[in-house]
Write a protein that binds this DNA or RNA. Structure first.
Length: 887
RNA sequence: GGGCGGAUAGCUCAGUUGGGAGAGCACCGGCCUUACAAGCCGGGGGUCACAGGUUCAAGCCCUGUUCCGCCUACCA
């Protein structure tokens, strides 16, 4: 007996802390810069420094950790590169809010001091999310942790910026962009969230300049009319073909503006006349460019009306809308106002309504960079999994627009561009130029804008590995093996990494992109603070343990399907973890050493069977993991451990361990039990790292961490693998017989404590032999008093019957049960069989089936027909006997 | 407007070359059997959304319909 017994139940808390610290201390997460072992690499989607671990992180990182731990067990040199993202706007907002609490703001501090304050904030709070990832068990190579604003990555950012500028792939210009008046910065198209809102469509009359009439335009944003510089109609629109005048008077502003013809206008919409505001609408901006119209900016950067807004100057944009509408009404120019639903853009960070606004911004020529990134996925150099996401990727990439990368905030990578104050020359360089390259003046000012956060994230797969240096790390681990990510950042991040990776590294950033689903609440709703349905992963971990939580995530992570999370589900998997714990507890009661080899000559049927199953299951789990079918991997392991190892193997082994005298066959069973438990721990380790490590330590004969173990190869334990296959057939029969007896016991309400007398009749030698050989096993698991084997149908009239394959099971009921009940049971069974048989008969009477189906399929169905009808015949005979016995 | 995904047992969902409809939970019955009552043994339960089509054979392939969810878009 082992001295080192496990406690009665598994207590995760202390165990988790202990092992995580140990793993880190022992450097078990460290990748080798170069090695003979097969490289496997993942870069973490860097969470925001402001982040708090949510379900999305938990799922995303659990998957990555499962893959990494699996590859280590497979002998790989694994790099899981961790880090955090400086998250420009988000972080700036957080620090600004903190300042606001002290009644201060960033302008009062000034840029330099404010940035200092952000760094300080980061020092203090920035590692929260990292610590939370550790609680999840994430086996990242923490010594290599990076930050998108650290020295090396900032240099990579500048290098990329300068190169792209020199290649003409970055440019600066006055364009219309999405503007958040709250954050006071431009946003990329992706950073705008569209939401359907109930608004109005305002129909406004613009009088013709010669007083001969009016043109009616329609708009959802009447305040923008103050900046109108034209009214456009379609060139073919007959309604406007013969106007007496080419100008209208812009109401409220009393400005003459031209009527122009532009094919963009949809004749069928409204009156067919469109007001054109080049400074505040992207389409109007384009019309303005085409038609050389002036732009009048009437909404300012803070969302209030500018000096060009006439008497509305200084009004908030929404107040202005009301005022304009009221004034138009007064003048009788608002001819109609109808309800209108339309999509309104909101800032993805602060949810304010976004204004399209004209400003000078920096852009990346995305179309050029997208081409090779499309090609890489089309050619399969990078696989997107599940495949359906590839289509989404293509759709976006084919229609990609230039990427606005400048942000008017302070926290981020300041754009490395300088302007000469005397001659206006623009210089882009790695470091501040000493003097103007054109006029030699020394008075230069740096561009105040910073780069979009996603600009630095786009470089993540190579910047974290030391680029632009040519490092050993890049050489070993780039392209990375797989990127695991949610679909919500497919465009934000994945597409841009593809573009930058290919452009600067000459190769794709990852071989596979695995796109996982969303974690939702119990009812399938998106979790959100406002709905109050957020489940905190840390809370779940506290309550149920990390392993149970991870197993739940894996078990429900079917490809392409969202995960509905609830604590009740986690509870179910906590039961599983506990089951494993207790199986180990049982095993450890009987094991006091480990073994290198198994004494093949003395292993029993259940021993062979479990080794054979272990072999199958470990390959199946491996295969599933390699294809990112996490749910299948987890489900297979779960089913095997609980319902095969625990329910059958451990039960089968009990009599040997408890009752059998010491000797070679008892030792052989102990060897197999040890081996099976050891391999099960390894198999489960990627999913449940903590409990498996804890048991591993207690298991005799294992040295060091389970993280250094090798993925199971049970077939290697026996020389002759074929005997394992034969064992499967025999064990299947044994299990079927036992189940058959238990079934009768259950159906007939015979107490488990009542030992039964059973006979097995079969015309087949092999069947009789198997039963005789495993007499003890069957008697034990089915709780029998006696077990007879016979080659004929001779039977007691008082026996219950079941047909198992080629065997007839006769369970003696005399004195145990009444026969009316047995007759009922048989009748039910016959009914089932008859139904099943009818289906098979129908198939076999179908000429088409016989002539066209593959012969193998026909043969199978024929066999089934024979088996079923034989079985029915036997049961029918028994039924008649039982009936006659009653009457 | 375009696109994608879903609809299978009371609930949540698996079901990958078209040939047996499954799991977990819940439910019912029986068990404190010396690892585990967070457990063990057994059981009931489904026109695989609807309508067609292809096929000897369809939960699976094709077409259409309904409902739900999501992504995306410059129609004022």
């Amino acid at each position: 007996m082992s001295k080192d017994l496990l406690d009665k139940g598994y207590e995760p808390k202390a165990v988790e802390q202990k092992w995580y610290a140990y793993w880190e201390k022992e450097g078990l997460f460290s990748a080798a810069d170069s090695s003979d072992r097969t490289p496997f690499s993942i870069v973490i989607p860097p969470p925001n420094v402001t982040g708090v671990l949510h379900m999305g992180h938990a799922l995303n990182n659990t998957m990555q950790d499962i893959l990494c731990r699996y590859r280590r067990l497979k002998g790989g040199n694994v790099l899981w590169m961790p880090g955090t993202d400086h998250a420009g706007i988000a972080t700036q907002n957080v620090v600004e809010r903190k300042l606001a609490q002290q009644g201060r703001d960033r302008h009062e501090l000034g840029r330099e001091k404010f940035i200092e304050a952000v760094w300080k904030w980061r020092e203090e709070y920035g590692s929260a999310i990292i610590n939370q990832l550790k609680r999840l068990g994430a086996s990242c190579d923490w010594e290599r942790e990076r930050f998108t604003m650290d020295e090396g990555l900032s240099r990579a950012v500048r290098t990329v910026f300068v190169k792209l500028f020199k290649q003409g792939l970055i440019y600066r210009g006055m364009y219309i962009t999405n503007w958040c008046p709250r954050c006071r910065t431009a946003l990329s198209d992706l950073e705008v969230e569209h939401e359907e809102l109930d608004g109005h469509l305002y129909h406004i009359q613009y009088p013709l300049a010669d007083g001969s009439g009016a043109v009616t335009v329609a708009t959802t944003r009447p305040e923008t009319m103050l900046g109108d510089t034209a009214v456009a109609v379609h060139p073919d629109d007959e309604r406007y073909a013969n106007l007496s005048c080419d100008e209208v008077i812009l109401p409220l502003m009393d400005r003459k503006i031209p009527i122009i013809r532009d094919a963009y206008v949809d004749k069928a919409f409204g009156t067919g006349a469109l007001k054109v505001t080049p400074a505040h609408d992207p389409n109007d901006f384009e019309i303005g460019q085409r038609q050389k119209l002036p732009s009048v900016k009437v909404i300012g950067e803070d969302g209030t009306m500018t000096d060009d807004a006439g008497r509305y100057t200084g009004l908030d944009r929404f107040a202005c809308r009301k005022a304009v509408t009221a004034d138009l009404k007064k003048q009788g120019l608002l001819v109609n106002m109808e309800d209108h639903k339309h999509g309104v853009g909101h800032c993805y960070r602060c949810k304010s309504i976004v204004e399209p606004n004209l400003s000078r911004q920096w852009f990346v020529d995305a179309k050029t960079l997208a081409k090779p990134a499309i090609e890489a996925v089309e050619s399969g150099k990078t696989r997107i999994i599940p495949e359906s996401w590839a289509k989404t990727y293509f759709d976006w990439m084919y229609n990609i627009k230039d990427w606005c990368i400048s942000r008017q905030i302070w926290w981020g990578h300041q754009i490395p561009a300088w302007t000469c104050r005397s001659c206006d020359e623009l210089m882009v360089a790695m470091e501040a130029p000493g003097q103007c390259v054109k006029c030699g003046q020394r008075d230069l000012i740096q561009e105040s804008d910073v780069l979009d956060t996603w600009f630095s994230s786009a470089l993540w797969p190579f910047s974290t590995m030391g680029w632009p240096e040519k490092t050993e790390l890049l050489n070993t681990f780039y392209p990375t093996s797989v990127l695991v990510t949610g679909f919500d950042i497919l465009f934000f991040w994945v597409a841009r990494m593809m573009m930058m990776g290919i452009h600067f590294m000459g190769d794709v950033p990852f071989r596979d992109v695995y796109v996982h689903a969303l974690v939702r609440d119990e009812e399938g709703k998106k979790m959100s603070k406002s709905k109050g349905n957020v489940i905190d992963p840390l809370n779940v971990i506290d309550q149920y343990g990390t392993d149970a939580f991870r197993f739940t995530l894996a078990a429900f992570a079917a490809q392409g399907r969202d995960i509905k999370m609830s604590e009740r589900r986690v509870e179910g998997y906590r039961h599983f973890i506990n089951k494993l714990w207790n199986a180990a507890r049982f095993s450890l009661m009987h094991l006091d050493s480990g073994w290198e080899k198994i004494d093949e000559a003395h292993i029993s049927l259940p021993d062979k069977w479990i080794l054979s199953r272990l072999d199958e299951v470990s390959s199946k789990v491996a295969e599933a993991l390699e294809e990112y079918r996490f749910n299948e991997a987890a489900g297979t392991a779960y089913q095997f451990v609980w319902h095969e190892f625990c329910d059958w193997y451990l039960e089968a082994v009990k009599p040997v361990l408890y009752d059998q005298a010491e000797g070679p066959s008892r030792t052989a069973t102990m060897q197999v039990l040890w081996t099976a438990l050891k391999d099960i721990l390894i198999l489960l380790h990627p999913f449940a790292p903590f409990v498996t490590e804890e048991i591993w330590e207690k298991l005799p004969g294992t040295a060091g961490s389970i993280m250094k173990a090798v993925w199971p190869q049970p077939a290697a334990y026996v020389a002759d693998i074929r005997q394992l296959g034969q064992a499967r057939t025999e064990m299947d029969l044994v299990m079927a017989l036992i189940t058959g007896i238990r079934n009768i016991r259950g159906e007939m309400n015979i107490a488990p404590s009542t030992k039964l007398d059973v006979a097995v009749a079969s015309g087949r030698n092999s069947v009789r032999q198997t039963v005789e050989m495993h007499h003890g096993l069957i008697s034990n698991l089915a709780r029998l008093n006696t077990l007879q084997v016979q080659d004929n149908d001779d039977r007691s009239a008082t026996a219950a019957t079941a047909i198992i394959d080629d065997a007839t099971l006769l369970v003696e009921l005399k004195g145990v049960v009444d026969f009316g009940q047995e007759a009922q049971r048989l009748e039910k069974e016959i009914g089932k069989l008859t139904k099943e048989l009818a289906g098979v008969d129908k198939k076999l009477s179908n000429q088409g089936f016989l002539s066209k189906a593959p012969t193998q399929v026909v043969a199978e169905v024929r066999e089934k027909q024979t088996a079923l009808s034989e079985k029915r015949q036997k049961l029918e005979a028994t039924f008649q006997k039982v009936k006659s016995f009653i009457s």
